[in-house]
Amino acid sequence: MQEMKKSWGKFIIEVLVLTGLFMLVQYAVSNELLNSYYQINLSSLCINIMLAVSLNLINGFTGQLSLGHAGFMAVGAYASVVMTNMMGQPFIVGIIAACLAAALAGFIIGVPTLRLKGDYLAIATLGFGEIIRVVLQNIDYVGGPAGIVGITQLTTWPWLFGATVLTVLVIVNLINSSYGRAIISVREDEIASELMGINITRYKVLAFVIGAMFAGLAGAMYAHYFYIIKPGTFNFMKSFDILVIVVLGGLGSTTGAIIAAALITVLTAALQKWAAIRMILYSLALILIMIYRPLGLMGNKELTTKMFGKIWGEKK
């Protein structure tokens, strides 16, 4: 009973915080308190969070090293644009198409490759990601290498916020469910899980498909925010960028992924004026963090309100 009350209280607080955050930004956007530059960075932030949290499900919680996340993002981006821009469907149809297409791609790629382990899986997913890019590059219907220009901007703050919250909520709830425990047991020890009667392939594919689906959602948001998509945007370097966020935050920590996404977005924007040395600083930071904090900023722990309590307590 006590527990119930507590979780209800937590739930209400969460809802309040989220609504407050949403209203605050909505107010700032509609009253032009937030200029377009900050709006663009805020959108990149949300998209990065979606990508990082979804990849974290595959790499962090399931323990399957995937290097092809940008490929799923590309599938989602193209599927949604084909629906909205070329077939004149409303945005929601585009979003659904993006999720379905990316999930399907995740299924097709996941079923054969997830039998592979470690580095072999990594290179196979990287290969598939690149194949997706090359194929898109050769389809003239979607503009070939030049991509699609002049996409109507449909990604507004409510859509973006909704999509981000949906991604985080679904993945967090999945992790905390019995499915999640099965998924984590696969990461910890495949053979032991199999002995316990867990169908490891099934859970690996499940995590892979869900991760891919949300990458597709992020792709749809990206395409309808930045007006232009081209295959070159979704190359393996993009997959690396997402992986960096995930590892920086801590494999298997959703809050870590969110914090790292914010950190990278802000860092990139802050270093804009020093274009020449920005990448040098960025790479150095990456190396140093990995040397001194190889488990990422958060390890596999989550940032909770309890932790704040602890810090307060210590200060007292």
Partner: peptide, 13 residues
Amino acid sequence: ADEAMNLSAALVG
């Protein structure tokens, strides 16, 4: 392209 857009917004600012 996305960086070009981002910078244009910053420059307009």
